[in-house]
Design a binder for these strands. Structure first.
Lengths: 202, 202, 202, 202
DNA sequence: CATGAATGAGATTTCATTCAT
DNA sequence: CATGAATGAAATCTCATTCAT
């Protein structure tokens, strides 16, 4: 059934175009016609594949997250040392945005803003769940790092939140002023400092 | 003679209404008529005080920052111990949002998003400058904390970025899911961990 | 009753201001607040003296026409030679616009445009009547000029229309490009040529 | 594939509708929705073809001028006798407005008024240039008429202005009161009188 | 009387979505 | 399927007029 495949391919084509445009202009300043133009198809054709602009936004959101997930998994896959794994996790975002996705940087803020506005359970933009998953992953990695020696004295769930938070907080500052610091360096340093801090707390 | 009106007071009245609405609906979903209604005045009256919706948004941005600045200065004012000062700084945001400004929480994301989109020098929404100032303050506080004993081995400017980043990254997670952790506790813990980490790094 | 006089004076003050503004911006681009500012009074005060913007426009129209009438009568008053009288009539407009009323030039077009749109009998802007009166005056002057010798072979009513028409047609061209010709010279020449033409026609 | 639409044809359709409405109501009292209704299309459709109301007005101005130009050229084309040519020129406008374009008469005043207000070089409504061209044409025709015999004693450039002026001045009077005289007859008479006057001046 | 703050009707313009071809 | 012409709901903004002081 070649038709089915074509359909999926075209959806992705539209998605990639939409991410490019959303990133440059933001959700609300992006017109359907902009996306159509970027995807090099007719304006009406969009509606053969997506029901509305919001649906495209939600889809591009997930498309983006999947890409990110893919990059992260691939990076963590082979590493076994917990510290190395954590450092790889930390610098993954830096690598993503400094690499192929450089131009998509600004879309993340829109995802955040819309997610918060649309914060009901079971919505297409539910970021809370994603953060929760990430906290679990990082929590586990952190525990592996620290408890080689002894039980940590601080709540590793909060610690995970702090580590993730620092990565994203740095990200915001870096987007606003890319000359403020080197993002990759900062994320790695942050991770090291936090791990050291957790160990010392004993 | 018509009623003598305090223009400044009315501008603030409109601003407070606009912040309330922006916070609930976001910049792009907020209509001028929403603001007018919230301020309990006519639609046309808005334009006696502000030239456009964007001007209101920029003004509410600064109004908000000034409030925050005020709260922070007041908290740091009397404290002399550097560590205490840093902890006070860290928990100031928590206090702001958990107190009177609870409902204004979500507007911050819009500020970020719009600022990034409108990232030219000398624009009304220039956040880069504000972050730079904050980094300088925190850098100085950090140095006071650590160098009591010896020279720090890491770049304190990046360290300041990391600390601020963690506070804001935690903020985002907390907005998305307020049950994930206690925000105030998390910010204080984060500050302690980072200071410990910086000390241990030697 | 000094109140009465004050009232009239203020109406005139408003009128003079309105003519100045209408002349510069045109009827539709003139705001009531512009007139108030030009008259150096409050916006609401205008409505103590005039019921609406259109009423002001109509009043300024008549005020202007009266001024013109005054200038013309004064010029024709002492002259007895019919040709001289006609030449004086012809150059009167030139004198008006090249003198004190230079800046008011453009308002005339608005008067025309609005008059045509509002072309009902008995309306405040009825220009048809005014033209009719002028045609009668010029017709009579023309007859005095020509029939010194013999009866004219052409309809002097149409001839009067032609003469008046040429003065105003020249006026439009002159407003559009004041370097095209000297208006006063052109009006006088026009009158001479037309009189000559009427005489020759025999 | 959607209906293949001739964009140019639709622009003209809109233009013709707009001229009809402008003629009846004037530029400033004409709403976009009036034009849409007259063109029997949706309000939004207008903006697919023109960027703004002013653009439509400017376009209708040129559309109108081209029509007029076309009519005049066609009339003068075959005539070789200079006097006949001049008479044909003079009565062309009469023919235009008494024929198909009768209802469009009043729009001319708006063109004048707006042109004068917007009197910068290189603007869409630059009438000065058009008058200049017309003066040149009439000047040349006049010279052909008069100098058959001898050199004219008056400046033929001003004479051309006078002749054109009389045609348009008559036009204004005629619009205001169509019973005042027969427009076509008046224009021809005017031309004859002026030529006679120019000849006699010797 | 004088005022200018307040207003809302109304105008322009945008754009997501529909649908005839 | 693909398209883009057509649309009207909805948003911003203007300004003549009112009216409390």
């Amino acid at each position: 059934m070649p038709k089915k495949i074509d359909k999926k391919e075209k959806k992705i084509k539209i998605l990639e175009a939409s991410i490019r445009v959303f990133a440059k202009k933001g959700l609300h300043n992006t017109k359907i016609s902009d996306i159509a133009e970027a995807a090099d198809i007719g304006k009406g054709t969009i509606y053969e594949y997506y029901r509305s602009k919001n649906e495209i936004f939600a889809a591009s959101f997930h498309f983006f997250l999947e890409k990110v997930d893919g990059v992260i998994s691939k990076r963590l896959y082979r590493i076994s040392d917990p510290l190395e794994k954590l450092l790889a996790y930390s610098s993954a975002w830096a690598e993503i945005f400094e690499g192929d996705y450089l131009e998509y940087v600004t879309i993340v803020l829109d995802f955040w803003a819309e997610s918060i506005r649309d914060n009901r359970e079971a919505t297409a933009l539910n970021l809370a769940k994603i953060y929760d998953e990430n906290r679990k992953i990082v929590k586990s990695l952190l525990e592996d790092c620290i408890t080689k020696d002894k039980t940590p004295s601080v709540d590793t769930k909060i610690a995970a939140s702090i580590l993730i938070g620092s990565l994203e907080g740095l990200f915001i500052q870096w987007i606003l002023d890319r000359s403020a610091f080197d993002y990759k360096e900062a994320t790695e340093l942050s991770t090291k400092i936090i791990i050291d801090g957790l160990k010392k707390g004993d």
